[in-house]
């Protein structure tokens, strides 16, 4: 049995995340309930869509408490990362509360389009094994309308009308606002770092 669990919370990028892991030589198992998490060495929570719908699904699958109780590193991707925070302004929904902070809508401004869609540079904010082999200024692929502010947990930030958190780590809780599964070599490197890091 594979020890990397990918949570199926209805996110449509589930397949892409699994393929990215397969390209790294890992065969993940897709899990939809608490029992599936048992024995996992790493857990990945992908997500595309809206926060209220995603939280509703996690509640429905009885995954909220088991995710909060996880003792192994968890990586949230895109919406999956936003769900790690306390709340999201999107639908004013309570999230998992594993990382301090509130997710907010990206502000639209002249020349600043929302959704933030495309390749943007990562700016390292503090050292972290998640960024091993990733150079300051390397690009990752983002598609999102909401983002977490820069806090003490921010590992890397990105700039779209102001800095926001692109990579977060709070103990074993990790997150990437971009899509590592679609961020070429940089994304693959960050995924591998997550799979290999000590905790």
């Amino acid at each position: 049995m594979s020890d990397v669990a990918v949570v199926d919370a209805g996110g449509s990028n589930l397949g892409s995340v699994c393929y990215a892991l397969e390209r790294l030589g890992v065969r993940p198992r897709v899990v939809a309930d608490a029992a599936g998490l048992r024995g996992a060495r790493r857990v990945i929570l992908p997500g595309v869509g809206a926060a209220p719908e995603a939280m509703r699904r996690l509640h429905e699958q009885d995954l909220v408490a088991p995710l909060r109780a996880l003792q192994v590193p968890l990586l949230g991707i895109c919406l999956g990362m936003q769900l790690l925070y306390e709340r999201s302004q999107e639908g004013e929904v309570e999230c998992l509360g594993l990382v301090p902070g509130v997710v907010r809508k990206l502000p639209q401004a002249p020349g600043i389009r929302v959704p933030h869609m495309g390749w943007n540079a990562l700016r390292a904010m503090r050292p972290s094994p998640l960024l091993d082999g990733v150079a300051d200024g390397d690009s990752a692929y983002f598609v999102h309308s909401y983002a977490a502010p820069v806090t003490a947990d921010t590992v890397a930030a990105s700039d779209h009308g102001g800095l926001f958190t692109a990579v977060v780590r709070h103990g074993r809780w990790c997150g990437a606002q971009f899509h590592p599964e679609r961020s070429a070599a940089t994304g693959a490197r960050i995924l591998r770092n997550f799979l290999e890091m000590d905790h």
Binding site: G15, S16, Y19, A20, E22, R23, Y141, V143, H179, E181, R182, S183, A184, A185, G187, A188
Partner: peptide, 11 residues
């Protein structure tokens, strides 16, 4: 679509 998705790592 699936064949492409498995192989490429850009959107």
């Amino acid at each position: 679509v699936e064949r492409v998705a498995r192989l490429i790592d850009i959107p």
